[in-house]
Simulated scan of single mutants.
Amino acid sequence: MEATARITAVPDGLGGTRLPVLESDGPLALRRTRAAGAYARVTVVGAMSAPLGGDRLAVEADVEDGAALAVDSAAATVALPGRGGAHARYDVRLTAGAGACLRWLPEPLISAHGSDLRMTTRVELATSARLVLREEQILGRYGEEPGTLTTRLTVHRAGRPLLDQELSYGPEAPGGWDGGAVLGGHRATGQLLVVDPGFERNPPAAALLGDSAVLTPLAGPAVLVTAVAADALVLRRVLDGALQTFG
């Protein structure tokens, strides 16, 4: 299956945001949901099981100058094996213009046993744009070994690289992914990225957040919180704490 869902957010001229493009496709159903303030809110609803092996799925969101968009999801995304053993792809492409605000806060991605998913998230930000982005990966459902999962997050600000990282887990990943230098036996991992022009004047300092999370200032007005945990609930608590502080 190939499917691409698209969102375009623009100012409505009254202090809010409207959505001239809200285009669902295949298993990616987009619904406008209740929001507060200037933000328009879109919830991604899974219309069928996906991604399966061989699927090619994508979500594109364009937040134009001065608009504010919050995107979440109704439930976790579960990567499942498909027939033939082909890997699946899930690509997220985000842009935010001058003075725009984008909050990308989906539910976790679960890598089920036997699955093979390659996921990329690419973000293009104007100099004055603000971004809050959360990613969470759960390696295996309860009592099962994980599938193979490769994720890459690339963020550019004003055309210059801000963050580019790739992570791989599971049986087809390079050795050591489950060792003490990476997950240390944990099965939930995630990160919160906040890009805020205000950090240029008052950048946060690096800090440990509990026993298994760290806040790292980036070479730009941004911070990255990275965490590992025993399960999804503990992971979310850590990232929510950081979100309340910086989001």
Rank of each mutant, 00 (worst) to 15 (best):
E135A: 04
L153P: 04
V123N: 02
L149W: 04
R160A: 15
S111D: 10
A126P: 06
E145C: 03
L163E: 05
L149N: 10
T154F: 08
E166V: 12
Q137M: 10
G143Q: 02
G114H: 13
P174K: 09
D164R: 15
H156I: 01
D164P: 05
A158I: 10
G175Y: 04
A129F: 00
L183T: 09
S128C: 08
E124Y: 04
Q137D: 00
E135I: 03
L117Y: 11
L133T: 08
R134W: 06
Q165K: 13
Q137P: 14
R122S: 13
L117G: 13
P171G: 11
T127P: 02
T120M: 00
Y142F: 12
D164V: 15
L162T: 10
I138G: 02
L105G: 09
R157H: 10
A181H: 11
L183V: 12
C101E: 10
Q165W: 07
R152L: 01
A181M: 07
L167A: 02
E166M: 13
V132I: 01
P174G: 13
V132M: 03
L163I: 02
P106W: 06
P171D: 06
C101P: 07
R134E: 15
V123T: 01
L149R: 01
E124G: 10
A126E: 08
P108M: 05
G180K: 15
R103H: 03
L125P: 00
T120F: 05
A181Y: 08
L105P: 03
E172S: 13
G175Q: 13
P161W: 06
E124N: 10
E144C: 06
A112N: 05
E172D: 14
L139P: 11
T154Y: 00
L117S: 12
L117P: 08
L102I: 09
A129Y: 07
G140T: 11
L131Q: 03
P108T: 00
C101Q: 12
I138C: 12
I138A: 06
Y169Q: 03
R103C: 07
G143N: 05
E145Y: 03
T148G: 08
H186F: 04
G175A: 14
R134I: 05
G184S: 14
L139H: 12
A158P: 00
T120G: 00
L131I: 07
G170C: 12
E136S: 12
L105W: 10
G143P: 09
A188V: 06
E136K: 08
E145V: 04
